[in-house]
Amino acid sequence: MNVGLGLPIADPPLLLDWARRADAGPFTALGLLDRLAYHNPEPMVTLAALAGATTRIRVQTEVLIAPLRRPALLAKQAATLDRISGGRLVLGIGVGPREDDYLAAGVDFRGRGRRLDEQMALMRRLWAGEPFGADVGPIGPAPARPGGPEVLFGGFKPAALERVARWGDGFLAAVPPSRLGPLVDLVRRTWEEHARAGSPRIVAQANAALGPREVVEDARAAMGAYYAWTGQAEEMVAGMLTTPGEIRDAIARFEELGADEVMLYCYGRDPAQVDRFAEVV
Rank of each mutant, 00 (worst) to 15 (best):
A250G: 00
I202V: 14
L64T: 03
G96C: 04
A121D: 10
R248P: 06
A121P: 02
R88S: 03
I93W: 00
L30M: 02
A222Y: 00
Y38N: 14
A204I: 01
R88D: 12
I139F: 03
E192H: 12
I57C: 10
G52A: 09
G52F: 04
A29S: 15
P176H: 05
L241Q: 01
A134R: 14
V237C: 06
P131D: 12
G245M: 10
L126K: 04
G258I: 02
F156V: 15
Q273L: 12
P43E: 02
F27P: 10
C266S: 08
W191H: 07
E193T: 02
A160I: 06
P177L: 09
A72D: 08
H39W: 13
G94A: 09
G198L: 14
G168W: 05
G147R: 15
E99H: 15
V281W: 00
F132S: 09
A75S: 10
L33S: 14
T230H: 08
P177F: 03
Q119F: 00
P212M: 04
P271E: 08
I84C: 11
F109H: 14
L186Y: 04
E118Q: 13
G25I: 00
A278F: 00
G155E: 06
G25K: 06
L172F: 08
A104I: 07
L16N: 08
G239L: 02
V95Y: 06
R98C: 07
R110W: 00
V262Y: 01
V45C: 12
A204T: 07
R35L: 01
G211F: 00
A75H: 02
A259H: 02
D100H: 13
P200L: 02
A272L: 15
A24F: 02
L73K: 12
R125P: 00
K76R: 11
P71R: 10
P41Q: 03
V95R: 06
L152R: 03
F132M: 14
G224V: 05
A160T: 08
E150W: 01
I9P: 01
G94N: 02
R179F: 04
D34W: 02
N207D: 08
